[in-house]
Design a protein around this nucleic acid. Structure first.
Length: 578
RNA sequence: UGGGACGUCGGCAAGCGGCUAAGCCUCCGGAUUUUGGUUCCGGUAUUCGCAGGUUCGAAUCCUGCCGUCCCAACCA
């Protein structure tokens, strides 16, 4: 936090740094607009994920870069899926990320009356009509894409609805009665009258309003007709004076329609610009799929630390700075891309390396007994809190003749290049003493190592060897008598497949969901300073990774999430040897 | 014989007719190191989907092919 550049992370260098900023700069230069306003347009039907964070960041920082403003506007026009809890979650998460629109928070549902009036205007102009076709009929009349034998899609021209040429008066009357609730759900729609033979499917008289008797989370039962996205979005943008309506590539095909509504409704001409959405390896960024994972109980909730949601990342231990840095690094383009999740992890490590306090904890304890240690003696040793930040100071940790070390740090028969503890070998106990392994106990039945014995060199207090002898390995430890017990939760990627969205024919994206992606390690121990840590506190467990205190932690019951492991070059050596 | 877009290193991504094609992640070496962490050095595209063309000169312009993605919701 002390790094002044940290808050700039995620903000691309300068106006013109990407094609969107170039376009905005050029619009300002040409006089097309004399100010800049963007908007974050979430639909409150799911929690915000990192893909939204990318999109929101673009909206937010483009506006900021040009001295403009950014509105948060909930596109809440589908009462069946939306909920206030989602609004609250999205607001909390965007604020946490630093994308704070303050009092510029709006709802499309607040524009229903205004949108209705604009629809009436289009009816009066003769460019919108009430249609009696059913959904199925409409689909058929539109002449939608059909796969042919070569799997190529062909689209015959659509046919006009028999109701297409109703008079403006009749349409007006019908539309008014739709609003009054005189017709059952789905019986009629209001459609834009454009061109049923248009090569672009979305231009074939798209629906503007549907009848749906479903209480809306904000407007209650005030309305039984709801506007569709294509109609609502450009006009909501216009109502707010949005200059640049930035969205993802799948809306590109909708741009002619976006412009058509603006032109016909004669409202403020916002400009839509598209960019490609984010994809990340080993996860999915589709609200539908994330919802399914949550609903089926495959994770603990939207904020499960394995989820790519902002709440999940936060609980996992991600910092807003790391997420913003990541977003800044992936760039903005129009190509379909798949970003390596390792980049996200790298951004977290880089951030936490600078700020996380170091601490020692042993996840899989193995008892180490120092045979020549004076019985009952406890020494306090000084340890550095953060070698990257001298201001973090030092702390004192207890050392004794009985310690826990990591099971991995002892091998009865060392593999090649292994330089930790094995019979006869010396190792440094971090901030402690240099010890030499003198033996070990093994359960003859199971072959499990029960404890390891060693002798220490009193001249090496603190870990320095006065005789300059070389001790290659340094391992972490915790004194058994003073250790605090803790639970560590280790996470793997939610999906074992690099591209879970590429589902095999007849399969499901859930096929590659890793059911073992959460591992609870219950019998772990940490140094005593961990005892008074609080929810959200972040640490580096030396040699293991970055951990943070999970909300499940209670007084006297420590629970840590591993946010990300440290880079592990030994694992690579091992892998190569295998 | 529909429409729209995109194709530069394993992954992102600069490049906008003229220095030996930025940078980051990954990967591979090596140095430093009381975290096999960090940091630091070095290496990894004679080549820009392919084929032609224009030009003194092209990843950048033109033409044609090839490939990938999106569009069949009264969802957004």
């Amino acid at each position: 936090m002390s790094d002044p550049t940290a808050d700039k992370a995620g903000e691309p260098a300068a106006p013109g740094a990407d094609f969107i900023r170039e376009a905005v700069a050029s619009d300002l230069a040409s006089g097309r607009y004399d100010y800049v306003r963007t908007r974050l347009p979430p639909e409150p039907n799911g929690w915000m994920h990192i893909g939204h964070a990318k999109a929101f960041s673009i909206d937010y920082y483009v506006a900021k870069d040009f001295g403009g403003t950014c509105n948060l506007r909930f596109d809440d026009t589908n009462p069946e899926k939306e909920d206030m809890s989602y609004v609250e979650a999205i607001m909390r998460d965007s604020r946490w990320l630093g994308l704070d629109c303050g009092d510029r928070t709006f709802f499309a549902s607040d524009y229903y009356e205004k949108l209705y009036e604009l629809a009436v205007k289009l009816i009066k102009k003769g460019v919108a009509y009430v249609d009696d076709l059913s959904a199925e009929e409409m689909s058929e009349y539109r002449g939608t894409a059909v796969p042919d034998k070569n799997n190529i899609t062909i689209t015959p021209p659509g046919r006009n609805s028999p109701w297409r040429d109703r008079s403006a008066e009749e349409n007006l009357d019908l539309f008014e009665r739709m609003r009054k609730g005189e017709f059952p759900d789905g019986a009629k729609t209001l459609r834009a009258k454009i061109d049923m033979a248009h090569p672009n499917l979305v231009m074939r008289d798209p629906p503007m309003y549907r009848i749906r008797r479903e209480p809306h989370y904000r407007t209650g039962e005030a309305w039984c007709i709801y506007p569709m996205y294509d109609f609502q979005h450009p006009l909501s943008d216009a109502i707010e004076g949005v200059t640049h309506s930035l969205c993802s590539m799948e809306y590109e095909i909708h741009r002619p329609l976006y412009e058509w509504f603006i032109r016909e409704a004669e409202v403020f001409p916002s400009r839509q610009i598209e960019f490609s959405r984010l994809n990340i390896t080993h996860t999915v960024l589709s609200k539908r799929w994330l919802l399914q994972i949550v609903n089926e109980g495959l994770v603990s909730g939207w904020d499960d630390p394995r989820m790519p949601t902002i709440a999940g990342l936060r609980r996992r231990g991600y910092t807003p700075e790391a997420i913003r840095d990541f977003i800044g690094r992936i760039g903005i383009a129009k190509t379909t891309s798949m970003v390596d999740i390792q980049l996200l992890e790298h951004c977290l490590r880089e951030d936490l390396n600078k700020r996380a306090r170091r601490v020692m904890a042993v996840l899989r304890p193995l008892k180490l007994i120092i045979e020549n240690w004076p019985a009952g003696k406890v020494e306090m040793l000084e340890a550095v809190n953060n070698p990257e930040d001298p201001a973090a100071g030092t702390r004192r940790i207890p050392f004794s003749g009985e310690l826990y070390i990591e099971r991995d740090d002892f091998q009865e028969v060392p593999p090649p290049k292994y330089f930790r503890l094995f019979p006869g070998n010396s190792v440094r106990l971090r901030y402690g003493y240099i010890v030499t392994c003198t033996g070990f106990d093994k359960d003859p039945a199971t072959g499990e190592i029960g404890s390891v014995r060693c002798s220490y060199d009193p001249a090496t207090r603190g870990g320095d060897a006065p005789d300059n002898r070389k001790v290659k390995g340094t391992i972490h430890w915790v004194s058994t008598a003073q250790a605090v017990s803790l639970e560590a939760r280790l996470y793997e990627h939610l999906f074992s497949s690099e591209r879970p969205m590429e589902v095999a024919p007849g399969g499901s994206f859930l096929d590659s969901l890793d059911r073992g992606s959460l591992e609870r390690v219950e019998g772990a121990f940490g140094e005593p300073s961990l005892a008074d840590s609080r929810e959200g506190d972040r640490f580096q467990f030396e040699r293991l990774g970055y951990f943070c205190v999970d909300p499940d932690a209670k007084p006297g019951r420590l629970v840590f999430n591993r946010s990300v492991s440290l880079r592990d070059s030994w694992a690579k050596i091992e892998k190569k040897q295998a």
